[in-house]
Design a protein around this nucleic acid. Structure first.
Lengths: 178, 178
DNA sequence: CGATTTAAAGACCAATTGGTCTATATATCA
DNA sequence: TGATATATAGACCAATTGGTCTTTAAATCG
């Protein structure tokens, strides 16, 4: 997963994968079939990790606003400095392959949908707790947040400082939270 | 430019470039040096186009809020349906190369800076015109908008409907404009 | 027109691509 | 131990990569 993550699909060659998996050529093909299948497995793992992380951060038993803060803080962490420069396998894959590769496209689309649903849910709970600013509607606010964090990952490629990202996130949250 | 745009750098092979430029192999190398230089030219053109478009949309002689609306409407257009699926050369390049290729990285970073400056400027003018919501600070709001529109391009890869994107953009603008 | 520059076509190159296969070594197990 | 299954290393493959070079055709210009 790591090697696809930091180089992208096309730029990752078989020798890279052999080094990363410490497998011989034969064993790798026996285990995974081909490069494309291996990539799909890596992508699936990346997605699963991201979703379970969100399930922890946005756990319904937590204070919803705290959850959203934790969720956004995670993005601040992953999009500033060296972490930011490394980028995001999902966004990179979306841009590189989602248009051409149907199997990839489906995964990307369903991930965004799942993410949006979780955020919308947290926002709903925040609203019933009276913590949402007036006029904020959970479902459209969730779409905004999803776009925003994915955009953070793009801009994060230029390795902004943590304080910058943090301030941006806080300014955004200020518009939605009471 | 078009062929890099719709396929990305690594996935674009010489034959694709020859077909797109209608040049012979020799002439192409005489004119541009190599694939990388040609790509840089394409990227520069893409960036120049984007910035002049913004200069029109956010023209200081226009009503700043109208300008921001036009700017965002352009993104709605480019990120929904087939346009969305096609993606954005800049975002794709940021994810594919910005981390590894210094020449590309500089261009990406300076583009985001330039875009943010233009948006911040428009927001400043909107504020002096009394059109900004209370507590909105132009510079951080500009960073938010930049992240948001770049995120739109990412999510746009899943080809959302125009109405969805439109509604999301309006909901966001509602939080910033009085 | 003929001479000269310019560009096209495509042969050619070494290196690399993803992928297969065989020979060898290493476990595993009776 | 000896037989068998498993995984390794790496030779090997055709196709493709980015890039060069030569030959031929098309403009250009006096």
């Amino acid at each position: 997963m790591d090697v696809f993550w930091s180089r992208g699909y096309h730029a990752t060659a078989l020798p890279d994968l052999l080094r990363a998996t410490k497998l011989s050529r034969g064993s790798l093909y026996a285990a995974f079939g081909d490069k494309h299948s291996l990539f799909l497995r890596a992508l699936d793992r990346y997605i699963a990790d991201a979703l379970t992380r969100m399930d922890v951060e946005l756990d319904p038993r937590r204070e919803p606003v705290d959850g959203l803060r934790a969720y956004l803080a995670g993005y601040v962490d992953r999009t500033s400095g060296a972490n930011g420069r490394r980028g995001c396998l999902l966004v990179a894959t979306a841009m590189e392959l989602a248009g051409q590769d149907a199997e990839v496209g489906r995964r990307i689309a369903s991930f965004f949908k799942a993410m949006e649903a979780r955020v919308a849910d947290a926002l709903s709970r925040a609203r019933t707790a009276g913590k949402l600013a007036d006029g904020v509607e959970p479902s459209s606010a969730a779409r905004i947040l999803v776009c925003f964090v994915e955009g953070l990952r793009v801009v994060g490629k230029t390795a902004p400082t943590r304080t910058t990202s943090q301030a941006t996130v806080e300014a955004l949250l200020d518009r939605f939270i009471k």
